[in-house]
Amino acid sequence: MISRPRRDITYPDRELDCQEAMEPGFQAIVDCMLEVGWARGEVMRALRRLIAADNMTQKENARVEAELAIARAMIRARK
């Protein structure tokens, strides 16, 4: 049974709890990919691409958040 991370987002081990909760799901995905005939190398490449896409998304989101914070500060400074 997968246990959900605690709702308090400030505790130190939240990231580990989230990884632990996701691990069985990723293992099931990998098992399905292997079952239908994907080679291990193909599975690993696909997972690496998924991780790379997530990293790019996180960087872009951080950039947009920074731009929004600057824009909000400029608007507040005008008032």
Rank of each mutant, 00 (worst) to 15 (best):
I75E: 15
P24I: 08
D8K: 01
Q58H: 10
D54H: 15
D54W: 14
R45N: 07
V30F: 11
A53M: 08
D54E: 09
F26C: 04
E23N: 10
Q27M: 13
T10L: 06
Y11P: 02
I9S: 05
K59Q: 13
T10W: 04
R49Y: 05
M22D: 13
A53F: 03
L50C: 09
Q58S: 05
L50H: 06
N55L: 13
A66Q: 15
A66V: 01
Y11R: 13
M22R: 12
E23P: 01
M44Q: 07
V43S: 00
V36E: 05
R6V: 02
M33F: 11
R14Y: 01
A66L: 09
A46P: 00
I70Y: 13
K79R: 11
I51T: 11
G25M: 05
K79V: 15
M1H: 07
G25F: 12
C32M: 12
P24Q: 04
M33K: 10
M74F: 07
E23S: 08
R48E: 10
Y11K: 08
N55R: 14
E67L: 11
M33T: 03
R49E: 14
E35S: 04
E15K: 08
L34F: 04
R6P: 02
S3Q: 04
I29K: 11
G25D: 01
I75R: 14
Q27P: 00
R78M: 12
W38G: 00
Q27C: 09
I75F: 12
R76T: 04
A71F: 10
V36M: 06
T57L: 03
C32V: 09
R40Q: 12
I51S: 14
V36W: 14
E20F: 12
S3A: 01
M33I: 03
A28W: 08
D8E: 03
I29F: 11
Y11C: 01
A62W: 01
Q27W: 04
Q58P: 00
Q19M: 14
L47Y: 01
A62K: 06
E67K: 15
R63G: 01
A52F: 02
N61H: 11
A39P: 00
R45G: 00
M22V: 08
L34W: 02
R14K: 03
C18K: 14
R40C: 06
C32P: 00
R48P: 00
I29D: 07
E60I: 01
K59H: 11
A66M: 09
R40H: 11
G37N: 03
A71P: 02
R7A: 15
V64A: 08
N55M: 14
K59G: 05
N55C: 09
R14I: 03
G37M: 08
W38S: 06
D17S: 11
R40Y: 07
W38L: 15
C32S: 12
P24H: 05
E67C: 06
G37F: 06
I70V: 15
I29M: 15
T10V: 01
I75S: 10
